[in-house]
Simulated assay, not measured.
Amino acid sequence: MKNLNNIFCLVMMCFFLCLGCKQITKSVDETFHPNDSLVKKYDQEKGLRENGGYKGDTKTSTTTTLQQQQEKTIVINGDTVNTPEIQEKAKDLFHDIELLKQKQTPANSKEIQKRVNEFLKEMNLPQTGAKNIDAEKPAIKARKGILRAAELESAEEKLRKLPKYRNKEIVVYESVHFYEDGSINLSLQHPENPKYVDAYQYKDGSWSEQKPVLARNIERRTFPLSKINFAAAQKVIQIYNEKAAEIEGAKPTTTAYISIWDNGMRWFPSSINGSRERYDLQFNNNGTLKSFRQE
């Protein structure tokens, strides 16, 4: 907004410059290009006869013509601009800005900036502020989104090939979480000491090092990886969002997870909350819809 104020001040200066261009042009010309010198030069080129005679009416006519031309034009960045024209364009600019200010929309400042830059471009003046306004906007980090089915299958295969678990049965503890940034969090029962559990995270194509977990009720909260399909997470999210789109006020989901209890597993989210209704969903282990009913 600071940049916009500066540009607005610049335009105001241009506008007043237009209104007073007669006096300003005259002063500038008298300082840097004196009329006497111009007339003298003109007389030297046009006012002298071949025999050296002088025509007085030529000086009067020349002086009047130069003053009239100076009063009607102004030079901007080397280009001669007609002063009535710049006055009219400045008038249109302020009219457009006033209309934009009355709209009071989120894009109001941007539209005013655009209109000012159009005016500056027409007047051959440097455009400012647009880059600075964009630079002031907070950076928005793009979300990668949950992994595609093929990527989920690859993550599952890499988990099976971890040195500690290679050629051994892998048992998942408590839950598996699939996040919208493409990461996967889970915990595995230690292959040699069943009383131990280690946590792992899959991110950027690889599994992290193990981290010890303080586990409880291990016997009731474990489930074999061989009965879990990571790619099914895509199905769960797709089905959930299709159902949510049919329910007033319901919001879509970007994540899914598996909860493990009593040697069984269940996919979540398992309910859709609308503004007027609530529905319960249940999924099969492979991610297909098992049941859908209103509560």
Rank of each mutant, 00 (worst) to 15 (best):
K2R: 12
N3W: 08
N5Y: 14
I7E: 13
I7K: 06
C14Y: 03
F15N: 04
L17W: 05
L17D: 06
G20C: 09
K22M: 07
Q23L: 13
S27L: 10
F32C: 15
H33K: 08
P34T: 07
N35M: 12
D36G: 14
S37Y: 06
L38E: 01
K40N: 11
K41S: 12
Y42H: 06
Y42E: 00
Y42S: 10
D43Q: 08
K46I: 00
K46Y: 10
R49P: 01
R49F: 00
K55P: 00
G56M: 04
T60H: 06
T60D: 13
T62H: 02
T64G: 02
T64W: 12
L66I: 11
E71S: 14
K72I: 03
K72V: 04
T73A: 08
G78C: 10
D79M: 05
V81R: 08
N82T: 02
N82H: 14
P84M: 04
E85F: 04
K91T: 08
K91R: 13
D92N: 15
F94A: 09
F94N: 06
H95V: 12
H95N: 11
I97G: 05
K101V: 08
S109A: 15
E111G: 03
K114C: 07
R115W: 00
M123Q: 10
M123L: 13
N124G: 06
Q127C: 14
Q127A: 13
N132M: 09
I133S: 12
D134N: 14
A139T: 15
A139F: 15
A142V: 12
A142C: 00
R143I: 12
L147P: 01
S154N: 05
K161V: 00
K164Q: 13
K168I: 00
E169T: 11
V172M: 04
V172G: 01
Y173A: 03
S175C: 02
V176H: 03
F178G: 02
Y179Q: 04
E180N: 07
I184Q: 01
N185G: 09
L186Q: 02
S187D: 01
Q201E: 08
Q201I: 06
Q201L: 09
S206Q: 13
S208R: 11
S208M: 05
V213F: 14
L214M: 08
A215V: 10
L225F: 10
L225M: 10
N229Y: 00
A231S: 15
A231K: 13
K235G: 05
K235H: 06
N241L: 07
N241S: 02
K243R: 14
I247S: 11
I247V: 14
T254G: 11
I260Y: 05
W261P: 00
M265E: 04
P269Y: 08
S271L: 03
S275Q: 08
Q282R: 15
F283Y: 13
N284K: 05
N286K: 09
K290A: 11
K290N: 09
S291C: 05
F292Y: 15
Q294L: 15
